[in-house]
Simulated assay, not measured.
Amino acid sequence: MKIGLYFGTFNPIHVGHLIIANHMVEHTDLDQVWMVVTPHNPLKKKSTLLDDYHRLHMVHLATENFPKLKPTDIEFKLPQPNYTINTLVYLEEKYANYEFALIMGEDNLNSLHKWKNYEMILKNYSLYVYPRLETKDLVADGMANNTTNFEFQNNSKINMIEAPVVEISSTFIRENIKNHKNVQPLLPVKVWEYIDHNNFYKK
Results as ranks from 00 to 15, higher is better:
43 L>T: 13
38 T>Q: 01
26 E>D: 13
154 N>E: 13
150 F>K: 12
55 R>M: 09
187 L>I: 08
114 K>I: 04
79 P>A: 02
47 S>F: 09
17 H>A: 02
50 L>K: 03
3 I>E: 00
137 D>T: 13
155 N>E: 11
178 K>Q: 13
87 T>K: 01
193 E>C: 01
114 K>R: 13
12 P>H: 09
92 E>T: 12
97 N>Q: 15
94 K>M: 09
44 K>W: 11
52 D>S: 05
83 Y>A: 12
141 D>Y: 11
107 D>C: 07
162 E>N: 15
143 M>R: 14
99 E>Q: 15
57 H>P: 06
168 I>P: 02
118 Y>E: 03
104 M>L: 15
74 I>E: 13
46 K>S: 14
133 L>A: 14
28 T>D: 01
71 P>S: 08
37 V>E: 00
78 L>W: 05
32 Q>D: 09
173 I>H: 07
67 P>Y: 07
140 A>S: 14
111 S>M: 10
113 H>A: 02
33 V>H: 02
172 F>Q: 11
190 K>P: 03
156 S>N: 14
56 L>C: 07
192 W>T: 03
112 L>I: 08
55 R>V: 03
194 Y>A: 09
95 Y>A: 05
68 K>M: 09
119 E>Q: 13
149 N>Y: 00
71 P>F: 02
173 I>A: 06
190 K>R: 10
2 K>C: 01
91 L>K: 12
68 K>R: 14
155 N>C: 11
1 M>Q: 05
34 W>P: 00
12 P>C: 03
65 N>V: 08
94 K>Y: 05
108 N>S: 14
144 A>N: 07
11 N>Y: 01
161 I>H: 07
167 E>N: 13
139 V>A: 09
29 D>R: 13
63 T>K: 06
56 L>P: 02
93 E>Y: 07
124 N>W: 07
5 L>V: 04
61 L>W: 03
194 Y>R: 07
5 L>D: 04
177 I>A: 02
201 Y>R: 09
60 H>E: 15
111 S>G: 08
78 L>A: 05
29 D>H: 13
28 T>M: 11
109 L>A: 03
146 N>G: 03
112 L>C: 05
54 H>W: 08
51 D>Y: 05
26 E>N: 14
54 H>G: 01
190 K>C: 06
159 N>Y: 08
126 S>Y: 10
87 T>G: 10
105 G>R: 03
28 T>R: 06
9 T>P: 05
20 I>G: 04
158 I>L: 10
202 K>F: 04
30 L>M: 01
96 A>P: 00
196 D>C: 04
